[in-house]
């Protein structure tokens, strides 16, 4: 199961990067970036998964003595939780800048912004 999730996560990353590089519309590029970041999160969580184990919550189903033999790795989960929250902040910033660019140029096409092009 972890392998399936990891494969689809990697495929999402590739699709997202491909979309971000080929789309010319700023909003569509941001959508592609958010898909890629979802893929990264899926890959990270799938690395922490161990087959046949349960969630890292030590309730009645998980005796305290054998906790280390029954739960999955909690560290990647804590990491991804942080990454998702920061991901929303990054998306909000990208959207605000995209809107600001649209205000100046009345266009969302990346080819209209050539000041920093080499």
């Amino acid at each position: 199961m972890a392998e399936i999730a990891m494969m689809s996560g990697f495929a999402l990353i590739l699709l997202g990067i491909f979309g971000a590089l080929t789309n010319r519309n700023l909003l569509r590029m941001i959508v592609a970036f958010s898909i890629a970041s979802t893929g990264v999160n899926v890959v990270l969580v799938s690395i922490g998964y161990l087959p046949g184990r349960t969630a890292p919550i030590l309730d009645a189903a998980v005796p305290l003595e054998s906790a280390a033999a029954q739960i999955v790795d909690p560290v990647p989960q804590a990491l991804v939780l942080t990454a998702i929250v920061i991901g929303l902040g990054v998306t909000a910033l990208m959207l605000a800048y995209a809107y600001s660019l649209f205000r100046h140029r009345k266009s969302l096409d990346i080819s209209d912004f050539t000041e920093l092009k080499w």
Binding site: N41, T54, G87
Partner: peptide, 27 residues
């Protein structure tokens, strides 16, 4: 399915809920 209910809640509330609305507001 990967035994990460905390992450699942965060992704459902933030990744698919609030992010979509941010996009629609800007759109």
């Amino acid at each position: 399915l990967l035994a990460a209910p905390d992450v699942a809640m965060t992704e459902a509330a933030i990744g698919s809920g609030l992010t979509t609305f941010l996009f629609f507001f800007v759109l």
